[in-house]
């Protein structure tokens, strides 16, 4: 599962930036931590690090944790109240936008995201009130900025490539498998836009979805993939709205005819619309009838 674009280093050994003995004065030693994998959990770990004056050498979700040889790992229980304190407190050290960029870094699901976030917060605190978010010469800052750019791109792609199907009960539903956990970031966009129809966007890879019921948008989780109410092509034609196949065909027709064969450039086509998105795109599904170009050229020169 590729989590990041080839342009970025996969995982920077963040801890290598601080050698033992070079810890900032507010840390007495270093430690390894596990947590439940939630963002609140991570914020709780950050607070624990400060309280115990331990520089985190590793922060890993429970289960995914790989203990170092001889290393003792401390598990931190998530505490929403303590997480809230950290979240609010971050604003004393950075502007809101930078704080949001840390949340997005978390959504990138990179294996080094926790340490990257901790490191960024530490940098901001050490900068003593100066906004570091444009200090692109610093590797941590630039990496956070680059990850945010990737997140933005994936969010934007989801806003573009979601394809709703209408079912007989009027629900518009779509299945996606984004590279990053971007559903929380697209909720507002879809809520504003599709205010007058019920809709569901299901992230099949992560097993949860966004559901809008004409009043508000909620996160719905499905424990097992099989519980997913409708998962893309698995929807049987029987539950679809009777005019749904018509509009899918019309969209395919439109897609075929808006193309200019003389300008064909498949490389560019795939760069804008990478193949991994095709499986959920209506216009990329097989045609019921063969495409017939309109013969509107007078070739009798």
């Amino acid at each position: 599962m590729q989590r990041h674009a080839p342009g970025l280093p996969a995982a920077v050994p963040i801890t290598a930036l601080r050698r033992p003995g070079e810890l900032p004065p507010s840390f007495r030693s270093s430690g390894r931590f596990t947590y439940d994998g939630s963002f609140d959990g991570l914020l709780t770990v950050v607070l624990a690090c400060w309280e115990q004056r331990l520089w985190p050498e590793a922060i890993q979700p429970e289960g995914a944790a790989q203990g170092g040889l001889f290393a003792e790992t401390q598990h931190i229980e998530t505490d929403e109240e303590r997480a809230r304190r950290v979240w609010d407190g971050l604003l004393r050290h950075m502007p809101g936008e930078a704080r949001t960029s840390l949340y997005k870094t978390f959504l990138s699901e990179r294996p080094d995201r926790e340490l990257l976030i901790f490191r960024y917060v530490q940098l901001a605190i050490e900068a003593g009130g100066q906004d570091i978010s444009e200090n692109f010469g610093n590797d941590t800052v630039r990496l956070v900025a680059d990850i945010n750019k990737q997140l933005f791109r994936e969010k934007h792609r989801m806003e573009a490539f979601v394809r709703f199907e209408k079912s007989h009960d009027g629900l518009f539903h779509a299945t996606v498998e984004p590279d990053f956990d971007v559903l929380p970031l697209i909720a507002e966009h879809f809520t504003k836009r599709y205010a007058d129809q019920r809709w569901l966007i299901f992230d099949r890879r992560r097993g949860y979805g966004l559901y809008y019921d004409l009043q508000r948008t909620d996160i719905l989780s499905f424990d097992a993939a099989s519980d997913a109410p409708r998962s893309g092509s698995a929807v049987s034609a029987a539950v679809l709205d009777e005019r749904e196949p018509l509009f899918q065909t019309l969209w395919q027709t439109y897609f075929d005819h808006v193309n200019i064969p003389e300008r064909r450039n498949l490389k560019l086509h795939r760069r804008h619309m990478p193949k991994r998105y095709w499986r959920f795109l209506t216009e990329k599904q097989p045609r019921e009838r063969r495409f017939e170009p309109i013969q509107n050229k007078n070739n009798a020169a």
């Binding site: 934007h156 450039n265 619309m273």
Partner: peptide
Amino acid sequence: ICHSYTEDGRC
């Protein structure tokens, strides 16, 4: 938003 791209790479 470009919702799709034609095979000639246009939005």
